[in-house]
């Protein structure tokens, strides 16, 4: 009895050295829930996508997706919306956040105003775009009245409407992240550069931007994820039958209009694959660009 008790203690000590002890039991419920509600459905979906409804081999669904240009073009249509939207949102956030770093009067209200559109919700933005940019909307009226155009320009029910909606809903989010990364950079670094004779442009180019790169990559990835799953606005302000038929719409139609859950799972899996591909590319590119540690909070 004493011998087995001692052996158990030894085992427990050995495991504890590798960080395994009873504290890890706290992790079990959360992991269990995620395995049940996330991992199992994901694997089930992958399995489902490999069992085509019409038969014809394991990969028949994937072949069908890429052979049918109406389906495979959704990849390009999604990228064409998500990439520019994420790029513009992050790119526009940088100079604004750069101006807003440090303390000055009016900083807080301005930040709040720029972040608040996060609460608008896709439907309000979509409705607003339809009213404001429509042929009889205020925007076209102003353009017509000052004589810039002779007939109303078409900005809704096409690519542009969806892009605008992604910019409005995505910008506050990207801006908030970039701003907090920017405020994490130690301002004394820039002053040190200034005393060493660096001009404003040089300070941005050689101090701020390199320190900001990892944060920008993160922000870009999250902004891209947000824009990539565009669904409501592509339906409401876009041309869901043609120009803005994004992958999410294709997956939804396969599942709930054609009841082909196998094909829907295929498109859902491909969506994840293409999105992760972009994320990996960004991380690789960023890893090549960025060497050394920043020491700032933005690292």
């Amino acid at each position: 009895m004493a011998a087995t008790g001692a052996a158990r203690v030894v085992l427990r000590h050995r495991l504890a050295e590798r960080g395994i002890d009873r504290v890890l039991l706290l992790l079990v419920p959360a992991v269990l829930v995620l395995v049940l509600l996330f991992l199992y459905p994901m694997l089930y979906g992958v399995g489902l996508s490999l069992q085509p409804r019409a038969g014809g081999g394991v990969l028949a669904n994937y072949q069908a997706f890429f052979r049918d240009s109406y389906q495979s073009s959704t990849v390009w249509k999604t990228m064409r919306l998500a990439l520019p939207a994420a790029l513009v949102n992050v790119g526009a956030s940088v100079p604004i956040a750069y101006r807003l770093r440090g303390r000055f009067r009016g900083r807080r209200p301005l930040t709040a105003i720029l972040v608040l559109p996060v609460t608008l919700g896709t439907v309000l933005v979509a409705d607003g775009l339809l009213r404001y940019l429509g042929p009889k909307g205020w925007f076209n009226r102003v353009l017509l009245d000052i004589g810039l155009v002779h007939e109303p320009i078409r900005l809704i029910y096409n690519y542009w409407g969806v892009l605008f909606s992604l910019l409005i809903t995505g910008f506050p989010f990207a801006f908030l992240l970039v701003l907090s990364y920017m405020s994490g950079i130690d301002p004394t670094l820039e002053r040190a550069a200034a005393t060493l004779g660096a001009g404003p442009w040089q300070r941005v180019r050689h101090i701020t931007l390199p320190l900001l790169t990892p944060g920008l990559a993160t922000t870009f990835i999250l902004a891209f994820v947000l824009a990539f799953s565009v669904f409501p606005s592509a339906n409401l302000v876009g041309e869901p039958a043609n120009e803005t038929r994004v992958m999410a719409i294709a997956a939804y139609q396969a599942a709930f209009e054609k009841y082909d859950y196998s094909m829907a799972a295929t498109i859902a899996v491909l969506m994840g694959v293409f999105e992760l591909l972009v994320i990996v590319l960004v991380l690789l590119w960023c890893g090549r660009l960025y060497t050394g540690s920043t020491g700032g909070k933005g690292a």
Partner: peptide, 8 residues
Amino acid sequence: PPITYGIP
């Protein structure tokens, strides 16, 4: 994207 795991 939520749709990716949402549909399965």
